[in-house]
């Protein structure tokens, strides 16, 4: 899922300092699961924004709502139900949601309520770790299912580097060296021969270095 975290409250208070009515809009997708932008977080942020406004000696009206998703046109259209009731939207969805509101609602002012962090999973309660970089050219079949692009600090395709010590990364000592883990896993699963394969120079054009990416599925388009 996409991992996000709420922006510092003062930053959001500053964004809405010029408006009187705010629609605080959550998303029931990834940001609900990682407790950054679901219903509960919408309630908390709306309260904090009202408190922030009180401290500035003014009143802020808030509408609290959560859409099923903010990354689909049909759900964004649901914002119509609050038409005329807000001066700005604070979206607690990931950056995709903020962009979709901006794309589809040309007259709406929209601000981000969260910082979108990475693609990750829940390693433990309250802890999320990056697992995928969305690079567009998956090599997990060669690396035992462990991603060197997202999980190696240097995104090496042939590792480990010389800085791997005791199975730990030289960049962050608390982070396991993913290349050590890849080798250990390939060994454990009887795929030792894969360790000697030299990965070719990678084509990064699918990783977004050539501008925004787009995917078209002819079997789904109408």
């Amino acid at each position: 899922m996409i991992i996000a975290e709420r922006k510092p409250v003062d930053e959001i208070v500053e964004m809405v300092s010029g408006v009187k009515r705010v629609l605080v809009l959550g998303c029931r997708g990834c940001v609900s699961i990682c407790s950054a932008g679901g219903e509960r977080e919408v309630e908390i942020l709306a309260s904090l924004l009202r408190l922030g406004a009180s401290k500035q000696g003014r009143t802020l009206e808030t509408i609290e709502a959560t859409l099923v998703r903010q990354c689909d046109r049909e759900y964004i259209e649901g914002i119509d139900q609050w038409a005329g009731q807000y001066d700005a939207i604070v979206s607690m969805a990931c950056g995709v949601g903020v962009n979709f509101i901006a794309n589809l609602r040309p007259l709406d002012v929209v601000y981000p309520g969260v910082n979108t962090s990475f693609f990750g999973g829940s390693a433990d309660q309250g802890i999320w770790t990056e697992q995928c970089a969305g690079c567009g050219n998956c090599v997990l079949h060669l690396t035992g299912g462990l991603c060197p692009v997202a999980r190696c600090a240097k995104s090496l395709m042939n590792g480990p580097c010389g800085g791997s010590v005791g199975g730990r990364c030289e960049i962050h000592k608390e982070v396991p060296c993913i290349w050590q883990a890849i080798h250990d896993r390939l060994d454990r699963t009887g795929r030792k021969e894969d360790m000697s394969r030299i990965a070719p120079i990678r084509d990064w054009s699918a990783a977004g270095h050539g501008g925004p990416r787009k995917q078209v599925r002819d079997d789904l388009t109408v």
Binding site: R40, E43, I44, S47, L48, R50, L51, S54
Partner: peptide, 10 residues
């Protein structure tokens, strides 16, 4: 809940 505490301040 966090929201309950914040409501108290509000």
């Amino acid at each position: 809940q966090v929201s309950t505490i914040l409501k108290a301040f509000e």
